[in-house]
Design a protein around this nucleic acid. Structure first.
Lengths: 238, 238
DNA sequence: AAGCTGTCAACTGTCGACAGCTTCGGACCG
DNA sequence: CGGTCCGAAGCTGTCGACAGTTGACAGCTT
């Protein structure tokens, strides 16, 4: 068992990536605002080369958008984008749950996170609650042991977080955040795949935020006719 | 009616990206071989700056891997990786099918691709068959009208194609490629969601290639108990 | 006054050069 | 003869500078 993990001099590209990423997610760089190479490079005291590479990566991750010769900006997301992200999340996390159900210590780890989340929202620590929310879902993906899935999910995560942050600026309070995870958690503790998928779906699709967003845009819930929770549909598995 | 279409100077980064990408997918850069910045820059007659950016993008897309101060290489995939990709594909394309079923001209466009694929394999044009295979699945994703899904899928597509190309070097023939798409196509023509999902699952999971790969590694089919195709991905978006 | 054209500042796109790290091969020593 | 040390070569990581493009503004023409 290793005592120390390998240290690694983070390259300027990685450092710049992280710095800009957290500035965007932290709301320091506001949606729609320009992200100037030259200005940031000056501020960080590095040359533009590494910064350009970092920006290219951020662009591929969806945290900035760019126009040729016009520079980079923080993207502006709409409620429609949230719907798109929600459906992808549902597909990917649904896949993750299947794998996570086979991890012995899965429910235990998840329950602990929910507990911490509950404490955080009880003491009004909004930032911690958001972090724990992300950690909950990330843990499910990790528990699945699916390396590529984790990669893809990570790439989407930041983008989703940014979109949520933008939209949720208008709806300040998200009280029962922790409780929203309980049905999913309990299904997983029962090793109930179908139930967990259904719980995940309503957790993601029927979140306060999306509900509110739909209300604002005056759209109806998607698929009013089609079976919505057929979660464990075609049991045609081999 | 405009007479001229907008011109756009393709940046060296994009050109280099495309060039290297097709060299990797085309097998000119072999799995495991080094991808040297300096050498390629010399060959292309450009400086290393744009090339580095292109390589960073390729890295994020999974077409090259890099170690700090050690340079870049074409990754070597295993049969296990194929399983991972298959499950992600299934989740994402399952989501795509829901949206694609609402596109009026969907089945028509897909049927035409299958026809061309059939003709291609009849005349032994392997390259065309592979391209059409990819086009078939890409069309499904496009038909869904889900922009983010298309982005994510595109990012994975190259990686999957590379993995398949590497593994399939050992199994040269893939005869009935076109026919493998027929059950899925027919389910979609009947607007049968459950059937289409099941067909997609067996198309992806029971492909000749994966079967053979499993045989070689001596592993059993994954998840002998659980249903695999009820892909979470609930109500499709608008 | 309206529209077009010329100019300008700021920015991105690209380049060549230097510094540090890694690797490989040969010289040296036991 | 084998192991170790050292230096050269090649590579990546980074930098500062130059060229090309863009959008805005001022000035001219009709």
């Amino acid at each position: 068992m290793a005592t120390f993990r390998a240290l690694q001099a983070a390259s300027l590209v990685e450092q710049a990536y992280e710095e800009i990423r957290s500035a965007i997610l932290g709301g320091i760089l506001k949606p729609g605002s320009a992200v100037s190479e030259a200005a940031i490079a000056r501020e960080m005291g590095i040359s533009r080369g590494p910064l350009r590479e970092a920006l290219r990566l951020l662009e591929q991750a969806g945290l900035v958008v760019s126009e040729p010769n016009r520079g980079h900006r923080v993207p502006v997301f709409t409620e429609e984008d949230l719907e798109e992200f929600a459906s992808i999340r549902l597909a990917l996390e649904g896949l993750a749950i299947r794998g996570a159900l086979e991890a012995a210590d899965g429910p235990e780890r998840l329950r602990e996170i929910v507990e911490r989340m509950r404490r955080a929202s009880r003491r009004g620590d909004r930032a911690a609650a958001v972090t724990l929310d992300r950690e909950f879902h990330e843990t499910i993906v990790e528990l699945s042991g699916h390396r590529r899935l984790l990669t893809v999910w990570n790439l989407l995560r930041d983008q989703i977080e940014l979109a949520v942050a933008e939209i949720s600026l208008t709806y300040p309070t998200l009280a029962g955040r922790a409780d929203a995870h309980v049905p999913l958690l309990e299904s997983m503790e029962r090793r109930d795949l179908a139930g967990a998928l259904a719980a995940l779906e309503s957790h993601i699709y029927d979140s306060e935020l999306l509900q509110e967003a739909r209300r604002r845009t005056g759209r109806r819930d998607p698929e009013p006719s089609g079976g919505e929770a057929e979660g464990a549909g075609g049991g045609a598995g081999p």
